[in-house]
Design a binder for these strands. Structure first.
Lengths: 330, 330
DNA sequence: CTTTTTTGTGATACCGCTTTCACATCGTAC
DNA sequence: GTACGATGTGAAAGCGGTATCACAAAAAAG
């Protein structure tokens, strides 16, 4: 059933029906007629047709590197909450960390497909930048700082600095690091810089043999921990860029009777739900992922309303959560 | 730029352009002209306009109760993989376990918004059933068996039966159960029935004081474990409907010096990634979530192609993964 | 009582594309 | 040489809505 059939059924004009579903500039009796007819027929206007003329899709494209990650899931939940309230729906693209899919999704959304875009990316390349600059719809980046664009991000540097400091303050002298891809400015580079700064501020030196780069997985954390402990010199504290990496490293420790925190303190960033039920409850830094998603969505909403082109970067703070894995008396 | 401007730019007719993007019934020289013009202008046809006429949205609605759950994220990843290959995109609705949002999303998708729907639901009510029966687009249910509808589900009964049996075979005599909402036929009812069957088959009796119903969270698992151990009689093995519940229960055990597996064996269903790094590595049953998503998506694709109305229920099998939490010598 | 404004209304052009249709062209069969 | 199907083509009629507009009726202002 289309609008004109429905209008006939309701005994009103096509324009009246259209108004009913839009600005509402309509008398009460017509409104009643239309509502009665909706009740009878279950008529719902076609979204697609509406889009053609009004250029409004009520869709927001969300590009993410994977779904099965607690942090990303929480960000996405936050996004969905805020946008859902405003009647928007999420068009989700999971790029599976595939660079090409990320680019092609941006290309797709750059066109007329959605009213706005939220990008959760790890590594931002020049190609990303140039595509982002050419976006015709408002676009928000969550989880990374990118000058000249609208971003919601975390204080990764502060988080890693303070977690590392926590361990050093307890007397650790041989700090080790398992980080992520440094091309990822947030989880990779910033968390490394924070670690390094804390080490230097404590008057210690950085030992390159105690620095590893892992992928975002437990297995990778396990492997890197193995490598860390393969040398003669052993670290006495370990900062991991993510909880998953830390969990993997912890597994290696258990298998090799490295006591936590007695022999090795471990701290990480992320505060995953499983941290407190790990082999040894893991000290970690809570980042406000869901809030980041909500803030990103709010920022997008305001961008979609106004026409101004002011770019903002919002940085959320963090909470250091101490658990047993760093609970050593200095 | 619209199709007629573009056609002019390319020096061909509007029809030629339309054919280029659709059936491709076109001569090679026109095709070349169009391709050259695309190169120059970056023209992309409007999805919205295309939808109006062709009634094809290339969108699949996915309704899920939450995002930050490993099982759901994995199912959704599987769905995205398969549908992405076929050029479909996912319109995601996170209902946050809100019954009304579930219903209203079904209502929304029942109309002309998407080409197909995949529903991941816990509790299916009569209202769900009647809405599902009235769907005008192909719809697949993942994670639940529902007669008369297309479903991809797990063998929850077999999974819980065998996990329980594993523990009873090792000599446990006082089995306890922490389950989920029994209105959830899969994770709630079937997993309970499997547990009960295993207990009865082992010649034991069901002790109602050893049966708890939890929500899908660690905290809830913790609370229910506390309640289980509050009586005089203590269980010697515990089956939990999900890994999260088990992790919470394990936390209670640690705090109260209940040794695992010596005093209490624990087994669960789900095989979450964190199982092996828990306080005590958790025995669990691996369900093929991602495969379920993939199969659901394939089923949807075949439903969208054909017009027949044959309903199938596909049940996936499972793998029992034994770890330390049940590693007791009977 | 006229003029102006407000409020409500339906006809109709239009959004950007797809589909239908009538027709032109070409190669092949008879 | 004619008949025929296969292939290719552009004009134009939709698809189901929204935006614009002219205009009527009622209310407010003068």
């Amino acid at each position: 059933m289309n609008i004109s059939e429905f209008a006939k059924e309701a005994g009103v004009s096509v324009s009246a029906v259209s108004r009913y579903f839009n600005d509402g500039y309509l008398s009460d009796d017509k409104r009643a007629l239309i509502e009665a007819a909706i009740e009878r027929t279950g008529y719902v206007p076609s979204y697609s047709a509406r889009m053609v003329r009004s250029k409004v899709t009520k869709l927001v494209g969300v590009i993410l590197p994977k779904l099965s990650s607690e942090s990303i899931a929480r960000i996405t939940e936050g996004i969905g909450e805020v946008l859902g309230e405003e009647g928007f729906e999420l068009l989700l693209v999971n790029t599976s960390n595939d660079y090409n899919r990320e680019i092609s999704s941006l290309e797709l959304f750059r066109q007329n497909r959605v009213d706005g875009v939220i990008l959760l990316a790890g590594v931002i390349t020049d190609l990303h930048r140039s595509l982002l600059a050419k976006m015709r719809v408002p676009t928000i980046i969550v989880g990374q700082k990118l000058k000249g664009f609208n971003c919601v991000c975390h204080n990764d540097l502060g988080a890693s600095y303070n977690m590392t400091k926590l361990m050093l303050d307890k007397g650790a002298k041989r700090p080790a690091f398992i980080g992520a891809n440094p091309e990822d400015m947030a989880a990779g580079k910033d968390r490394r810089v924070g670690f390094e700064k804390a080490v230097l501020d404590a008057g210690l030196t950085l030992d390159p043999r105690f620095c590893e780069i892992a992928r975002f997985s437990m297995d990778s954390g396990y492997e890197k921990a193995k490598h860390l402990f393969s040398g003669r010199e052993k670290p006495d504290c370990l900062f991991c860029a993510t909880d998953n990496i830390a969990a993997g490293a912890m597994l290696y420790c258990r298998e090799n009777s490295i006591r936590i925190p007695e022999d090795l303190m471990i701290g990480a960033v992320g505060d995953s739900r499983f941290d407190r039920v790990l082999y040894v409850p893991l000290s970690s830094v809570h980042l406000h992922y869901k809030t980041a998603g909500r803030e990103g969505a709010k920022m997008l909403l305001s961008e979609m309303k106004k026409t101004s082109e002011v770019h903002r970067i919002v940085q959320l703070e963090y909470d250091v959560i101490e658990r047993e894995s760093t609970n050593r008396i200095g």
